[in-house]
Design a protein around this nucleic acid. Structure first.
Length: 509
RNA sequence: GGUGGGUUCGUAUAACGGCUAGUACUCAAGAUUUUCAUUCUUGCAAUAGGAGUUCGAUUCUCCUACCCACUACCA
């Protein structure tokens, strides 16, 4: 029987989601939507030590900004993780800390079935065992090779175990990793992978101390309960795939075990290694979707606040590790959904290229209407003390400058002279163009522009065989403050003849 | 150290045994533009190394090198 496609994005609220996480969410979303299935959000907050206030909200807001809308787990109307079951959200709560009561019985079932055991080793004892192994140049692995010499329910009498279970609150349930088994797995991206269980350890599944499962148990139980059909996650999880396979086997859930896809990592732009929090501000690009202020009051840049359009961000993220199999580069969300396929996800890590990110934003900026851009530009104008400008004027300005900018925030630097007269003139250009001779000619032409118009004035320059470039640039310098910018005709059309004349005064000095 | 994964221009990627290894970003040059930007044209630039299989390997196999991940009562 064909099951309805259900995928989940299961972040841990230990900090802001970075762009790698957003990409994982995006691929899950695209995969689900392409197949007409569900995209579910689940919060994996089983580590009480690393919980960061605000992180959960940040994650939801970041996904919303990107246009990644969950079908289940988060109520988009309130922006909150769902706690009460309903028709739309039948598996609530979607926060693992609120599901804590549910996991213990699964852990104990594994113990009863011989797939797990109780372990009473203290942190000190384990550290000592590790140190001892290291002293001999070996790695300590808690598994079939060592577990007989450690303090657990496999090496004690039933009475002892019962006593410790009662008297102590720091025991754990560990998975009893089989000895000498080859686990054969299939990954949708990497193909067939095999691992010998002798290299794996007896992972802790449940902690008595805080009555919570670890990732591995919670993950498998919830994926099963929530009827997840495909698990699409980062490559860092590939090493624990054998354990997850074995857990499905231990629970007898092989029939509905999801398929797995391990995504390549996002790498930092220079050097090696995966993208980390600090890289962005060091190298001048954001690694986060939205600004994030940590507990020390440091702010990390976000794409949103840095002026990227969400469409551009989503598009560039999608192309990092995936390709459509064609040469198309511009995709809106629906386009991505239609084109997405897991077969075209690459195996190797992708280095993020900030230049390409800017290029994408530039392309999306051009796609915006002049009207939309004007609305975005107006608040910036107000910040610069420009008021009383007609909306229509701003629209006309946007039409002329949008091809010159990467971000809306660039507009002011590019076009301030269309709103206020320049007060500073680039020295290099002044030296080059404002010679006494050029100024005299420019002033005469400026006079002609007023009386007979720009075109006729240009005609005059040609007839007199005067230097067109020198004159025009002298005039432009007076208008703009630099020898760059829009054509004289465009500037004139915007600021008008009176303002033009006023700005020509500077040539008389 | 052990285990697993990966490796095509600087970057992202295409070519799933067969044209001169294609495209985009970046960079350079030229054209257009009275300037700048845009646009257009052109150019620079890659199959990590070595064996093997094959009529023929970027593609399949093995070895080496390098990179990455994992190796917690974190996810």
């Amino acid at each position: 029987m064909e099951r309805r496609t259900r995928v989940r994005f299961a972040p841990s609220p230990t900090g802001p989601l970075h762009m790698g996480g957003v990409r994982t969410a995006l691929y899950n979303y695209l995969y689900a939507k392409k197949r007409g299935g569900d995209f579910i959000i689940r919060i994996e907050d089983t580590d009480s030590q690393r919980f960061v206030p605000g992180a959960e909200q940040y994650i939801i807001e970041a996904l919303a900004w990107c246009g990644i809308i969950p079908d289940e787990g988060v109520d988009m109307a309130t922006g909150k993780v769902v706690e009460e079951a309903s028709e739309r959200h039948p598996h609530a709560p979607y926060r693992q800390s609120q599901r804590r009561g549910l996991y213990r019985k699964y852990a104990e079932q594994l113990v009863a079935d011989g797939w797990a055991y109780y372990a009473f080793d203290t942190a000190e004892e384990l550290n000592a065992a590790r140190a001892a192994a290291e002293a001999q140049g070996q790695t300590f692995i808690y598994n079939a090779g060592t577990r007989d010499g450690l303090r657990n329910s496999l090496t004690m009498t039933e009475a002892e175990v019962a006593e410790l279970l009662e008297s102590r609150t720091d025991w754990t349930v560990r998975f009893k990793m089989p000895q000498g088994r080859i686990v054969a797995m299939d990954d949708m991206i990497r193909g067939h992978v095999e691992v010998n269980t002798n290299t794996l350890d007896d992972k802790v599944l449940w902690k008595r101390a805080d009555e919570l499962p670890t990732y591995h148990l919670a993950n498998i139980v919830d994926d099963h309960l929530m009827e997840i059909t495909e698990v699409i996650r980062g490559e860092e999880w590939l090493p624990s795939l054998p354990l997850h396979y074995l857990l499905y086997e231990a629970f007898g859930w092989q029939d509905t075990m999801p398929k797995f896809a391990h995504l390549p990592l996002l790498l930092k732009p220079v050097g090696n290694g995966k993208l980390s929090k600090r890289d962005g501000d060091k190298m001048g690009f954001p690694v986060f979707p939205l600004n994030w202020k940590n507990s020390e009051g440091e702010t990390y840049h976000g794409y949103r606040e840095d002026g990227y359009f969400p469409e551009a961000f989503v598009n560039l993220l999608a192309m990092l590790g995936w390709n459509p199999g064609t040469e198309q580069e511009m995709f809106d969300m629906q386009g991505l959904i239609d084109a997405f396929s897991i077969e075209h996800v690459s195996k190797s890590g992708a280095k993020f290229n900030p230049e390409k990110a800017k290029w994408y934003n530039k392309e999306y900026l051009r796609l915006k209407s002049d009207e939309e851009l004007a609305l975005l530009f107006e608040p910036i104008l107000a910040q610069h003390g420009v008021s009383g400008v007609e909306h229509d004027y701003v629209v006309r300005v946007c039409a002329l400058i949008k091809e010159r900018a990467t971000f809306v925030a660039d507009f002011w630097d590019i076009a301030s002279y269309l709103f206020v007269a320049p007060t500073q003139f680039v020295e290099k250009d002044v030296n080059k163009f404002w010679t006494a001779e050029n100024k005299a000619m420019a002033l005469e032409i400026a006079g002609l522009i007023k009386t007979i118009g720009l075109e006729q004035a240009e005609q005059t320059i040609r007839e007199r065989e005067w230097p067109m470039g020198k004159i025009m640039n002298s005039i432009r310098l007076a208008l703009v403050g630099a020898s760059s910018g829009l054509g004289i005709a465009d500037i004139l059309g915007l600021i008008g003849m009176d303002e033009f004349q006023r700005r020509m005064e500077v040539l008389k000095k």
